[in-house]
């Protein structure tokens, strides 16, 4: 109940933040612009519209999560609004979870709106409502949940600029870490292999949430892969949030 109150307040804060609308505007422009790109392309134009649309939702969603998420906790400490909050009967983890869920709610609404624009753009191209595309959006959203947790983790101990850099690095590393798998197969030295394996286990693999190609090209994916990706996302989010709570629990608000 207390988490809900903080989450709703965070939601109010986020939707009254101008940066959200700026990013939303660019996301919408980018999705609609995919039609122009499609006209200029030789080949399957519908696929271009879908590809660019999904990539835009992912990119602008991440930017929203990072730019708002990294400021959420920091601003409370910097503006000292946290003083009155912590003196109320709430536990510190409730505060942090409230912030997290508030931003997740904001992202849910923004992703839904972006998806609507995306589906409409596709509809004007194919005259079909392709709800199957939403499966790819669902996993983009799971990735956004994880990125939100990461942004909040960094926000607990760092300034928004540094936190944004760290969070975007997490996003980039996460999308390239799959190449470590190839490296593991090619490495001959056993200790080095072990090290890379440990690194791969620790680093996020955000490609697990990338079902864009499969959805756009209509490839079949076994349900267990979807299930694995969803569980991976939730477990990683829980791990990051636990870290954030541990750091936040010991913080002095000077």
């Amino acid at each position: 109940m207390k988490i809900k109150a903080i989450a709703l307040n965070t939601f109010k804060e986020a939707i009254r933040d101008r940066i959200l609308y700026l990013l939303f505007f660019f996301a919408a422009v980018s999705v609609i612009f995919s039609r122009v790109l499609a006209v200029l392309t030789v080949g399957d134009r519908v696929k271009i519209v879908k590809d660019v649309g999904l990539a835009s939702i992912s990119l602008f969603g991440v930017l929203m999560a990072v730019m708002i998420g990294t400021g959420l906790v920091y601003k409370e400490i910097d503006k000292k609004t946290i003083y009155t909050l912590i003196s109320k009967p709430i536990r510190r983890f409730e505060f942090l979870l409230g912030k997290f869920f508030g931003l997740v709610l904001t992202l849910l609404i923004m992703t839904s709106l972006m998806s609507l624009i995306f589906l409409l753009t596709v509809f004007f191209h194919t005259f079909k409502i392709e709800a199957g595309l939403l499966l790819a959006v669902l996993f983009i959203f799971i990735e956004l949940i994880l990125i939100t947790a990461v942004a909040i983790l960094f926000s607990c101990f760092s300034t928004p600029i540094l936190s944004s850099l760290f969070s975007l690095s997490f996003f980039l590393i996460g999308h390239f870490s799959w190449s470590l798998e190839t490296l593991i197969q090619k490495t001959k030295s056993a200790p080095l292999k072990l090290f890379i394996q440990a690194l791969y286990a620790l680093l996020p693999d955000l490609e697990n949430f990338n079902f864009k190609t499969e959805v756009v090209y209509g490839l079949t994916v076994l349900p267990k892969y979807y299930l694995f990706s969803a569980l991976y996302g939730l477990a990683y989010t829980a791990f990051i949030l636990t870290l954030a709570v541990l750091i936040f629990k010991r913080r002095d608000f000077v």
Partner: peptide
């Protein structure tokens, strides 16, 4: 608790 020079959620 009322803090010194209170800062509150100005968007509310």
């Amino acid at each position: 608790y009322l803090p010194e020079s209170p800062y509150f959620y100005e968007y509310l």
